[in-house]
Design a protein around this nucleic acid. Sequence first.
RNA 1: GCUCCGGUAGUAUAGUCCGGUCAAGUAUGGCGGCCUCUCGAGCCGCAGACCCGGGUUCAAAUCCCGGCCGGAGCACCA
Length: 515
Amino acid sequence: MSIDEQKALLEEISPELLVYEKKVEEKKLPPLPNAIKGRVVTRLPPEPSGYMHIGHAMSGILNYVYAKMYDGKVWLRFEDTDPRKIKLEYYESFRRGYRWLGIEWDYEKNNSEDIDLFYDYAEKIIEMGRAYVCFCDPERIKSLRKIGVECEHRSHSVDENMKYWKMMLNGEFKEGEAILRLVGNMKDKNTTMRDPAIFRIVEHEHPLTGKGYHVWPLYDFAASIEDSICGVTHILRTSEFILRDELQNYIRNLLGMSNPTYVEYSRFEFKGTPVSKRKLRAIIEAGLAERWDDPRFPTIEGLRRRGILPEAIREFTLTQTGFSYARREYDWSLLYSVNKKLLDPVARRFFFAPYPVKLEVEGLEAGELNIPYHPSNKSLGMRKIDYTDEFYISGIDAGNMRIGQTIRLKYLVNVKILQISSDKIRGKHVSGGPAQNIPIIQWVPAHRFIGIKILVPDVLYIDEEKINQESLKIIEGYSEENVNEVKVDEIVQFERFGFCRCDSATERVFIKTHD
RNA sequence: GCUCCGGUAGUAUAGUCCGGUCAAGUAUGGCGGCCUCUCGAGCCGCAGACCCGGGUUCAAAUCCCGGCCGGAGCACCA
């Protein structure tokens, strides 16, 4: 029975089976708990103490997409209350990164703008008798906290605490001599509730506020208040903060502020590519990389240089991710495949011969060839290649050849292999077109080609701690001259080699994105 | 060590709250075929999983207990 006959029969007996429904079912984000259309406010809370990386990106996308889904607003708020850690350049790294990802924020501020406000709230809490100045050294605090015992400073009166607090502000104590602690519960199972420090003295210049302040709020205090005054309704963040929810809610409750809804998930990690500054720095210190925008790094700049599209990161986050608490480690192939689907329809194709080997074809007359830049996307136009009877082909292809075999130079001619020597292959022009049993290979005219260099990135770590000493390979070869037109940032496909982003047009350096 | 939280194919996930429609869905990767002047893309197909052990129940991936394994937190960082 032919296909058509089968179809006709099926039509008669069970037509519904012919209604071929492809489950498009675009995976959508699950609904946000407690979300009201038009009222959702989320936030991007980077600490400007390092370069933005893919984890920040994915979290940022989640916060942004949810806000948009509910016609809400987004804050970009720098958590810059540790003067010692932060640097000016990092603020811009995040702004640039978010912009690159297509994340638009409605408001922007820095926690460091609100230090006076934090002082006001601190005084309120002191007046309530819910905070005290503690003079214990860090060791003592730690050990008392461990056994759940209060120190003598906790029983100071409100007046005494206010006096000490003013002394802190006036610079009468040095760094490390006094901190302001919240009255929590020293026996709470949640150790973050055991009288956490909320202010400490930092004798270090802040890149934005200079030397204006030396008493700085700690994270929980600053963040909980900021989230409230920014009107943040939903906090989507990684789960290492989960124990702090209770503390932050507690602080807001003391101040009569309302609490947001938390959605937490485990960190986004990629196999062999740690995000931690420590491990990345180890790579640099081992001399294997020079800069933080290295294409092997998970920094936003690194990913961009490698040729990962922002849309791919976004797609990936939305479709391959969930809100699991389980530890997860994504395989890069998951992201690559999303990236490839975006790149494939629009990337121009070029011929490239790695490890080039010369091929002479007897009986072939010189000529010129016009071929498309893309097999199906006509809008990418055509290119021209002049050729003679001498070519360069990939050394890998050359290695696979056998005497007597017929191969095809793509779009050009068939060649019967006559002789193979270490530096050269000879063949003769034979008639015929592409056929199923004839390998098709890419080629470059021997009189007109350009030398290019391709950096091929691999994972940085083989196991958790073992550095991959060969995480970057350099492949050199010849490409067709048309590659001269390729500008920096364009991502092309070198046929049967892979997608590569042009990293330097003048030096003709490319970075391999993926196959 | 203490306190939380997890464990669905190689990987990432859906399903778990409210047991049955889950002899477990999807994506990616693997394999095979079709198509194609790329070993790419596309199309079709195949293989592949509920951590282990008990219990509750007519019925458990889903509930309970124990074990094992993994992660996070235990800062005058965020």
